[in-house]
Design a binder for these strands. Structure first.
Length: 702
RNA sequence: GGGCGAGUGGUGGAAUGGUAGACACGAAGGUCUCAAAAACCUUUGAUCGUAAUUGGUCAUGUGGGUUCGACUCCCUCCUCGCCCACCA
């Protein structure tokens, strides 16, 4: 609530009225992110568009700061997340072009033709946004059904048809629009715009493929070079001229489909385009923008696909919006000393199209903090994503009472080192969380830009049939059943071992028993334990230190599957021995403990009881032990095996002493003794010998 | 339509320019047992046959390229998965 009030103070939180996603069952507004395929994410009802007044967060003010740059803003986040977020923010550089509109089919005023028209003139106008102003190819304009200009430009003859179309569009649900596919619909308004570049009259249509939420809610149709515009023009008999010569000289008439602009970006050249003829496409677009700006008919702009975050909910369960509405003073924040505003219990929870908190009169009626007169609380609650956008700051010191979080502690511990989670949070939660952090930075509360240094996304375990687990498909594996049969540790080891952390794949049921067997073998290791036997051979040391190193590194790299594999390898070695020393035993348990916490703890205590010296030492859990260290020197053996190749194909291996590892002639001398190598060199001449110390020796022959 | 990712034995996977298949699962054969289970041992990419204690050849979706050397890097195409989408 304190954060919300700061946002209100800075103009980031504001009350607005727009067309919003509305769930008829839950009787609440939904964010775009919470409409899944046109359905409410909670109840599955079909979402409709409804104009509602509500609270917004001006996340669009942070659009630029939320963009990821090429070096990932100095943090380590998955490329897929950065790409998806940038795409969602949708920064586009383009131009807004204002067209004069003449009502009906009047004769085109001369002033439009000779270019003396200026936007200051008292004429009707419609403004479109485009990234690629192919204006010599523009043959119509489409405005969204919700566009206010329609009231002004629709001619009396077309009034009924247009109004009917608008009405139908407003009743369409997201689902309707999608199930209708891409079939274009629309109605002529009866009016024309003047295409500045050639003085031609082009019809203005209303069509729902223009979306009020994007750009200016109006589009210029360039059907020769845009697929959607082409489909529309074709259906309604509008000309589809081509104005770009393709990279391979294509100039023929368009019959089947538009020539997509993107294929021309590199090589296309303008034609039938007046002053642009012969100019390369990209340059022509810039020249067109210059032209419109110079004439005062257009303005270069940057637009974003991102929209402000609709943040208030007409639900009971949530953080109350800490505002008071006063007839005299308007919206007044609840004074800081009265925070937090607690959620009242005595309310009617049932959705009735208004916020449930409103039903508690006693709670609702307060006096205005400014004038003391009668006022009402804001009855809405905040989207839960508001809370999850900053919880990790609070977790650092949940007892802190002087503000939402302790800036000192936060300075010490934040940003988060690794933030684990699912890909479903890419466009919601993690974007919001980044937004909050950037807001905190502007408030001077933190001095970093990104809340998490590293983001790691887990994969998804699919059902055995390869589909996402779902009750309706009956392919759900219940972990509880597996735990009952094999124990939690075996299930944990299985999940770690069977696939990379971030991989998605089906549950492979067969392998589960193997994990149980692995832990059973670990358990049996206790019978080989000899506390008093402290001597370790070089081989013992090699295996132990290798495992400690590899397992530690793999855990750091979130490669749990290979970490487990290394432990299995070490176990195989330990089993092959007559006895296992205490140091080996303890270290094995410690590095296994994150994966199998229960079995290892049990064995840890067992070895304590066996060790007469340790018996009297107070209980210390295995999970409180330091991670063992390793000695790099013990991992290197006295000799290394070098592969001997002929033309890159393995023919033999040689063993070379460590201290001679860098001496190519030593290696060559050794290799020449190989009969197998000689057999492959026979009758050929050696052109070159490539030696990679300690790895390969390659004879290039011909 | 756009973005991101993946394609390696019967299966899950390992190897990110240097000995492809680590580590497991499964399978086959064996030991033990009256028998089975469990456990343990051996074998396990394909293929050739001159049967090798260390044989040859072919193999990482397809076709090309770079390199002494490519699962790995570059280009073509194919298939699958996930996310976004009448985004002007």
């Amino acid at each position: 609530q304190w954060i919300f009030e700061k946002m209100f103070e800075k103009g980031i939180a504001y009350r607005g009225k727009t067309l919003s996603n509305w769930c008829p069952t839950d009787q609440t507004v939904l964010a775009n992110e919470h409409v899944e395929n046109g359905l409410c994410w909670r109840c599955g009802d079909t979402v409709v568009q409804k104009e509602v007044e509500q609270w917004f967060l001006k996340i669009t003010d942070y659009a630029e700061k939320l963009l990821w740059n090429k070096d990932g803003n100095g943090v380590e986040w998955p490329k897929s997340v950065m790409a998806a977020q940038n795409d969602w923010i949708g920064r586009k550089q383009g131009i807004e072009i204002t067209f004069p509109v003449i009502l009906g089919n009047e004769v085109t005023p001369e002033s439009f033709k000779d270019g003396s028209w200026t936007s200051q003139d008292d004429v009707l106008t419609v403004t479109v946004f485009t990234t690629t102003p192919i204006n010599f190819g523009a043959t119509f304009i489409v405005v969204a059904p919700e566009h206010p200009i329609l009231k002004k430009i629709t001619t009396p003859e077309q009034k009924n048809a247009v109004e009917k179309y608008i009405q139908e569009a407003s009743e369409k649900t997201e689902i309707d629009r999608m199930s209708e596919g891409k079939e274009k619909t629309g109605v002529f308004t009866g009016s024309y715009a003047i295409n500045h570049v050639n003085g031609e009259k082009i019809p203005v249509w209303v069509a729902d493929y223009a979306l009020i939420k994007f750009g200016t809610g109006a589009v210029q149709g360039c059907p020769g070079h845009d697929q959607k515009d082409f489909e529309f023009a074709k259906k309604f008999g509008i000309p589809t001229p081509r104005v770009i010569v393709g990279p391979h000289g294509e100039t023929g008439p368009i019959t089947e489909k538009a020539d997509q602009v993107k294929s021309y970006v590199k090589a296309g050249v303008m034609m039938n385009s007046g002053f642009l003829d012969g100019i390369e496409f990209t340059e022509a677009m810039e020249k067109t923008k210059d032209y419109f700006e110079a004439k005062g008919w257009g303005k270069r702009v940057v637009t974003y696909h991102l929209h402000d975050w609709s943040v208030s909910r007409q639900r009971y369960w949530g953080t109350p919006v800490p505002m008071i509405h006063c007839d005299t003073d308007g919206m007044v924040p609840v004074p800081e000393k009265d925070l937090p505003v607690n959620l009242p219990y005595d309310v009617d929870y049932q959705p009735k199209g208004r916020a449930p908190l409103e039903t508690n009169e006693e709670w609702m009626n307060v006096s205005c903090p400014k004038c003391g007169g009668p006022a009402k609380r804001d009855p809405e609650t905040l989207d839960t994503f508001f809370d999850s956008a900053w919880y990790y700051y609070r977790y650092i010191d949940p007892q802190y009472s002087k503000g939402p979080f302790d800036p000192k502690e936060v300075a010490e511990l934040m940003p988060v080192d690794i933030y684990f989670g699912g890909g479903e949070h890419t466009l919601g939660h993690t974007l919001y969380a980044r937004f909050f952090t950037k807001f905190f930075k502007d408030l001077g509360l933190v001095d970093f830009d990104e809340f998490a240094k590293k983001r790691v996304q887990h994969g998804i375990v699919l059902g055995p049939d390869g589909n996402k687990m779902s009750k309706s498909k009956g392919n759900v594996i219940n972990p509880d059943d597996l735990v009952k049969e094999f124990g939690t540790d075996a299930v944990r080891v299985y999940l770690s071992f069977m696939m990379p952390y971030n991989a998605t794949g089906p549950w492979a049921p067969g392998a589960m028993y193997g994990m149980f067997r692995f832990l059973k073998r670990v358990w049996d290791l206790q019978y080989k334990l000899k506390i008093e036997d402290s001597t370790m051979t070089n081989e013992d040391l090699f295996h132990m230190h290798t495992a400690i190193k590899k397992v530690g590194e793999d855990i750091e790299d979130i490669k749990f599957n290979t970490a487990v594999a290394h432990m299995m390898k070490w176990l195989n070695y330990l089993e092959s021995k007559q006895t296992v020393g205490q140091e080996e035993f303890m270290n094995f348990l410690i590095i296994l403990s994150p994966f199998a916490p229960h079995v290892t703890e049990e064995l840890w205590q067992l070895q304590r009881l066996t060790d007469s010296e340790a018996k009297d030492v107070p209980f210390v859990s295995i999970h409180q032990q330091a991670w063992p260290s390793y000695d790099e020197k013990l991992i290197v053996s006295d000799t290394v095996v070098v592969a001997v190749q002929v033309n890159g194909k393995l023919r033999d291996t040689i063993e070379i002493k460590n201290e001679k590892i860098k001496m190519q002639n030593e290696a060559e001398e050794l290799a020449m003794k190989s009969e197998k190598l000689q057999a492959h060199l026979e009758g050929k001449s050696v052109k070159k010998v490539i030696y990679v110390p300690g790895k390969i020796l390659n004879f290039v022959v011909s």
